[in-house]
């Protein structure tokens, strides 16, 4: 399959890329890793008139830690995250999700910014970023703005990004002492989209009480789904069996999966229930140290 014809632009600077997006707006699509965009173009699900290839903007490929925040450039490849000591040491939840995304060849090109900006509820990073409370930085013709991840996913394949904006950075607060995170993904085969995925991140205090909780789901809702009511049950609890059961029950009831090749609605709800239990148990055990 060959994609439909388009005009190809390969800007060498961020400024140049932004001016192209400003000029072409909705008619342009940004090409980063390309592993969602090119398949969609082959299937004619996307037919942009202009492709703005941002792969030369290597200034957007970085991972660094500063004052308790991890800063990740939008064009950072999955493989760079996988090989990053900072990610392994500081963000175990992110480190756990990486090998579950697609396969090694795809991770060589695919970017974290693209994974988020695509707004696909089947992608794995969105739930992880919801659980970690990340902030997205977008740059447009009028400068930079920050968007909290809770406000980022607006609708099916729709994010808060404007057509003229580039997702330039992801900021993730380093979880404090006494934190733990876990991602559980059920997939039909290695590299597939999740039948269901669950990201859990919790922090406990000296007495073992939960002081903060992040819980979010992959591919069982029209957008990446943050289980706010489940988080509320966890905070203040001892993350005991009862609290975990209750949160997992809420996750399973409140999500809205569709009946498709990956399973029936009933099956997916049952999987969300069990995966949420497992993710929370593992996250809690890690947090307790």
């Amino acid at each position: 399959m060959i994609p439909p014809a388009f005009d190809y632009h390969a800007p060498q600077t961020l400024e140049e890329a932004l001016s192209l997006l400003d000029e072409y707006g909705d008619d342009a699509k940004i090409l980063s890793g390309g592993h969602s965009l090119i398949p969609m173009m082959k299937l004619r699900l996307a037919q942009p008139e202009h492709i703005v290839d941002i792969n030369a903007l290597t200034e957007l490929e970085y991972i660094r830690e500063e004052n308790g925040v991890i800063y990740i450039g939008g064009l950072t490849r999955e493989v760079a995250l996988e090989e990053s000591d900072i990610i392994h040491a500081r963000l175990p939840l992110v480190s756990e999700v990486l090998p579950l995304i697609a396969d090694p060849q795809v991770r060589n090109l695919a970017t974290i910014g693209g994974n988020l900006a695509h707004g696909d509820p089947g992608n794995d990073h969105p739930a992880v970023m919801l659980a970690l409370g990340a902030t997205i930085v977008a740059q447009g013709p009028e400068g930079k703005r920050s968007i909290h991840i809770n406000d980022f996913f607006e609708d099916f394949y729709m994010t808060a990004l404007e057509p003229e904006e580039i997702l330039t950075e992801i900021q993730i607060p380093v979880p404090p002492q006494g934190s733990g995170g876990s991602y559980k993904k059920l997939e039909r085969k290695v590299g597939d989209y999740a039948v269901a995925g669950v990201a859990a991140q919790v922090t406990v205090d000296g007495s073992g009480a939960c002081t903060s909780a992040g819980l979010a789901l992959t591919n069982v809702h029209y957008i990446p789904f943050k289980v706010t009511d489940g988080e509320d049950v966890l905070v203040g609890s001892k993350l005991d069996k009862e609290a975990i059961e209750k949160a997992a029950g809420i996750a399973s009831e409140q999500c809205d999966p569709s009946n498709d090749l990956r399973g029936s609605v009933e099956y997916k709800r049952a999987m969300v229930l069990e995966l949420t239990r497992r993710a929370l148990r593992d996250a809690a055990n890690q947090a307790r140290g």
């Binding site: 994609p3 190809y8 390969a10 090409l31 390309g34 592993h35 090119i38 398949p39 290839d53 792969n55 493989v79 090694p104 060849q105 795809v106 060589n108 090109l109």
Partner: peptide, 19 residues
């Protein structure tokens, strides 16, 4: 379709020649 592009293994059915 795996090849090496600047030493990295990639799937050449999902990369444009211009890239």
């Amino acid at each position: 379709c795996t090849i090496l592009l600047d030493g990295k293994s990639i799937k050449s059915c999902t990369v444009l020649a211009v890239q």
